[in-house]
Design a protein around this nucleic acid. Structure first.
Lengths: 218, 218
DNA sequence: AGTTTAGAGATTGTATACAATTTTGTTGAC
DNA sequence: GTCAACAAAATTGTATACAATCTCTAAACT
């Protein structure tokens, strides 16, 4: 799949950034990174481009590339955007979703229910992501799907945090059930509204979490 | 701004592709293009990355980059996606738009009206784009704005065609007026619905246009 | 002291050279 | 005649060399 060194380096760098090995605003040194990966500057530069389009770093001409960790306001914007995209996916999917996909959503929800009962966050998180991806796919719009997947990936670590808030698992689960019901009825407006709120709540929960952290930190 | 050769080359290539100097599926030859632009392969490759993220070309590892002209189904998907994005922008803008921005929208519409009266497509098209960009901006979400601007740019030539259909100018104009009214009232749902239809109609009109061309061509 | 400027060092952008892989064209067997 | 195997050419990916620009320091000047 990624025969090119540049791609593996991009993936590795992405992980390094996501796991917090770089602080916001840090400049990524081409030469040092090239040495670190045991390659020349060329593939490192190619990797930078990929990260740049993914929004993980900012490239300033003749200056270098700088890692961009989203701050509070940026994260809230992302969640807001995500809510609108999911709503759009839901609206389109309501008219297009196949019976087999509906069954898959049901099956996913059943697994989620068991995970909720056990308090298995990791499992729930995994199936939750699957649930949403089915809807993206059933929207039947490749461009929308590509963008929403990109954002889902970017928000992944933060969605994870938010899920661990007290009572959020059960709440999220209940919302999923309603969404499937509306999809089954083909009620586009309702599906859109449900999904928008479902994701918007994630943003709010995350906001609370953030506010809590801030009061502790400072 | 773009001190780098690579950026100017990307812009030039973009124009060459948009003006139809390459057919769908054509491979872009690094060496020949480098010679054509009087540079080495390196900046050409960098330009390829930019075009790739813009969705103008597809990059296949160890094979090369191939120009991708959107076909009928892809264009309709893009218009559909655009409709959803504009709706999202409208929804957010309804709650956030400033008075000065509302005045700007009014002013833009007045210019549009004069353009409609004169049948000045070029002028209308220009101000129309401005109209929408004001809404994108007033949505107050940088990520949404960036994506919708990217798509607006990509759909530009096709929106232009669609505008020249009989009666479309006046119809579009009337829709603009309604949108401003709903924005002024702050009615998010209505703004979203109006904008969604406003853009969806563009897709439909374009579809008609396309169908007409096809029957002529084959 | 603070500001300006010259210059060295560091870093990005581009050119060229080389390696690895794919594509193409030819030959040979069936 | 078709297909397979192999060799040659072409092309992409990577490494290295060079050029252009930026940064930072330190000395000179007001």
């Amino acid at each position: 799949m990624d025969n090119r060194r540049a791609d593996t380096i991009a993936a590795e760098l992405e992980q390094m950034i996501l796991t917090g090995q770089f602080s916001d605003g840090d400049r990524l040194n081409e030469i040092k990174l090239a040495a670190h990966f045991g390659v020349s500057r060329t593939p490192v530069r190619e990797a930078f481009h990929k990260l740049s389009t993914a929004g993980m770093v900012e490239q300033i001409p003749r200056r270098g590339v700088f890692v961009r960790h989203p701050g509070a306001v940026e994260l809230l914007s992302m969640f807001e955007y995500m809510a609108e995209m999911e709503a759009a996916c839901g609206r389109l999917a309501a008219a297009r979703i196949s019976d087999t996909a509906l069954q898959e959503l049901d099956a996913t929800n059943k697994i989620c229910e068991r995970a909720v009962a056990k308090g298995d966050y990791e499992r729930y998180y995994l199936e939750n992501e699957r649930f949403h991806r089915i809807i993206y796919s059933q929207a039947g719009n490749p461009f929308l799907e590509a963008d929403v997947l990109r954002l889902q990936k970017r928000l992944r670590p933060f969605r994870k945090m938010q899920l661990q808030l007290r009572g959020r698992l059960a709440q999220s689960m209940a919302e999923h059930v309603k969404i499937v019901a509306a999809l089954t009825k083909g009620d586009a407006d309702t599906v859109a509204a449900l999904l928008r709120d479902h994701v918007a709540v994630q943003g709010e929960k995350f906001h609370h979490l953030l506010a809590g952290l801030k009061t502790v930190a400072e």
